[in-house]
Amino acid sequence: MGEVHEKALEIISLIGCGVSLISLTLTIVTFCVIRHFTQERIIHVNLCLAIGVGQVIFLAGIAATRNKVGCTIVAVLLHYFFTSVFCWMLVEGIQLYAKLVTVFDSNPARRSTAYFLTGWGVPLVIVVISVAIDHDHYGSENNCWLSVDSGLIWAFVGPALTVILTNVVFLGMVVRVIAKLQNCAEDDKYTKIRASLKAAIVLLPLLGMTWLFGLLSVNQHTIFFEYIFAILNSLQGLFIFIFYCVNSSEVRAQIARKKQTIELTHGLSFSSVPATTGYSSNRVRLLRQAKKSHIRTLPAGRQYVSLSTTEFLKKV
């Protein structure tokens, strides 16, 4: 590979992964601001963490081949976090199907534990077994990744392919069930499921194609594949932010409600009442009571109108 291509790929990777990391951070921050962590959003956050940490390690250490021990550690960590990405995508598929077929979850804590064991525990088992069997082929002279020639790469490819095929089955079952249901177009539950289904249908092939071209670029040393891998790798975080936040009507509605709550809090704050207006102590007392009452009784998921201080005082 020429120096020009190396420089171009480095720039694409830095900019692309930078955009991806910013998008992943915005996704997590958005969920934290909303403060409404459903089981589905907890899965989203863990998926973001797995991709984000993996990309940081990829940027910092994929080419750190001078130190053999350091390169081996980088390769092991990359194996763990990128396998975890696929495991959390598997959890996404399972949760989507469970959300469709389960009317009432009697034991959500048990299901969450199973999800965490799948997302973080299964990759750990895979990596520990792989390191115990063939730790010498973590890292090579060209990059800090699993060796293709020794066949160790199948410790990553095998689980990834299994997840992809399993998720295809789950998504197919979800599509089949939704297609059979009648008069569910306006049902809020199925609207959310369809939105999640669209995200999964886009993200799963994106992850699969990313690592397909990644393997081809390592094995075939073809510049075209390396460019495609660098571009697709940078799009993961951006697409997650678009589908889980920007394109989610539920998230947009909750952000709007959060904004209205803040506006109402500021609009009814005592500090917003001018000292020169000559309001009676009774009106100030009513103002304080109204502030507490409004904040305490704001209904989740219901629209309301925020009154300005002046409008409220006119009413009292």
Rank of each mutant, 00 (worst) to 15 (best):
E3A: 13
V4H: 09
A8S: 11
I12H: 04
L21K: 10
L21P: 09
I22K: 00
V33Q: 07
I34R: 03
T38R: 05
T38C: 05
R41A: 02
L47D: 04
A50Y: 02
G52V: 00
G52Y: 00
Q55P: 04
A60Q: 13
I62W: 06
N67E: 13
V69D: 10
G70S: 04
C71D: 03
C71Y: 00
V74G: 00
H79M: 07
F81P: 00
V85L: 05
V85I: 12
F86S: 04
C87K: 09
V91C: 05
L96R: 01
S112M: 13
T113D: 12
G119W: 00
G121Y: 03
V122G: 02
V125N: 04
I126G: 03
V128A: 15
I133P: 07
D134M: 14
D134Y: 06
H135V: 11
G139F: 01
S140I: 02
E141V: 08
N142F: 07
W145Y: 10
S147R: 01
S147D: 05
D149I: 09
P159V: 04
A160V: 06
L165F: 05
V168F: 11
V169Y: 11
L171C: 11
M173E: 03
M173G: 00
V177M: 10
V177Q: 11
N183K: 13
E186T: 15
Y190T: 07
A200E: 06
L207Q: 11
L215M: 10
L216I: 10
S217L: 05
T222F: 08
F224P: 05
F225P: 06
I228Q: 06
I231S: 03
N233I: 07
N233Q: 13
L235Q: 12
I242H: 07
Y244L: 13
R252V: 14
I255T: 04
G267E: 10
G267V: 06
S269F: 00
V273M: 08
P274S: 09
G278P: 09
G278R: 02
S280C: 10
R283V: 13
R288H: 09
Q289V: 08
A290N: 12
T297M: 11
P299K: 14
A300P: 10
A300R: 14
S306L: 08
S306C: 14
L313Q: 06
K314M: 11
